[in-house]
């Protein structure tokens, strides 16, 4: 690692006035700009949510379960719980399916089937969230309403989100399994381990970091998803005490009310956006850490 970095730098120096130098300068400006943009977004969020910190303070979000901004009630807690419940539920559903799919494709599937599976996953990943939402609202929600009205519920949100993050889990797990060095698997085979043993005790542990990274990314996506959740979750501000209860996610709250919010109401929506951004940053950082570890392990 260190060696390669060194040689890269020395090549840069040798070529400072050549094409490499120009390209490198150009690329670093572009990279710097995107980093700056991210910084500005966060700065903007802080500035817009500032009235909350200077006037109301965090405690107004934590006091009480009621969210009626026009009546001065700003209880965000039920929505935080709802967002976390949706994320947890969808990950619990999507991980076994995604992982099983990846293992099947890597170790069992005939090439034709494996290709087909990869194409289906890529397509699934490309469907816009509003389409998932529309499908959920017109098909899934009425089906759940047959079991227990109103149908728009935590369950509907979990099912839709699971479908949306399934490709993330499946494709990152597959990439992690594909990246296992050949010699490790050959070694397992040489020890006369069974197929099951090779997968459970060699392949999955070796790919663990990459798989966990994928799951964390999927969690971030589930948490940040807005449109589909807004359409199927029911959006009633209350604690998620049942799978059939309509709940409102933090993202849906911002999308529902931002266009019409003023003053402290608006600032509190920005503050919840700031909070969400923080959690997604944390998840992405953890995912990055996990994939870094995976890289060192395979070297």
């Amino acid at each position: 690692m260190i060696l390669s970095k060194h040689s890269f730098l020395s090549r840069l120096k040798a070529n400072r006035h050549g094409t490499d130098g120009i390209v490198s300068a150009f690329l670093s400006v572009l990279a710097g700009l995107s980093a700056l943009l991210l910084f500005l977004v966060v700065l903007f969020l802080v500035r817009e949510s500032w009235p909350v910190f200077s006037r109301g303070g965090w405690h107004m979000f934590l006091s009480g379960q009621d969210w009626y901004p026009l009546e001065g009630k700003f209880g965000l807690v039920p929505m935080v719980f709802a967002s976390l419940a949706m994320m947890t539920g969808s990950v619990i559903l999507a991980v076994p399916f995604g992982l099983a799919g990846a293992i099947f494709v890597r170790f069992y599937a005939p090439p034709v089937l494996a290709r087909a599976y990869k194409i289906v996953m890529a397509l699934l990943a490309g469907i816009p969230s509003v389409v998932f939402g529309l499908w959920g609202l017109t098909i899934l929600v009425p089906m759940i309403a047959h079991i227990q009205p109103p149908g728009s519920s935590l369950l509907a949100a979990i099912l839709i989100l699971a479908l949306m993050i399934l490709p993330t889990v499946a494709l990152t797990s597959l990439a992690a399994l594909d990246a296992i060095p050949r010699n490790i698997l050959d070694g397992a085979q040489a020890l006369a381990m069974s197929r099951k043993g090779q997968i459970l005790f060699v392949a999955i542990p070796a790919a663990r970091a990459g798989i966990i990274g994928g799951i964390l990314l999927a969690m971030a996506r589930a948490l940040g998803e807005t449109m589909a959740v807004l359409m199927v979750a029911g959006n009633v501000v209350q604690n998620p005490d049942s799978l059939f209860a309509p709940v409102r996610a933090l993202t849906a709250n911002i999308a529902l009310e931002m266009a019409y919010a003023t003053d402290l109401h608006r600032a509190s929506l920005f503050a919840s956006g700031l909070f969400l951004t923080g959690v997604v940053f944390l998840l992405s950082w953890l995912a990055f850490q996990a994939s870094e570890r995976a890289r060192y392990r395979s070297l």
Binding site: E71, S152, L230, G234, V236, A255
Partner: peptide, 12 residues
């Protein structure tokens, strides 16, 4: 008042 209403679904 909005807090009087017992909604099952809230829409945009």
């Amino acid at each position: 008042k909005n807090s009087d209403i017992k909604a099952d679904v809230v829409i945009g």
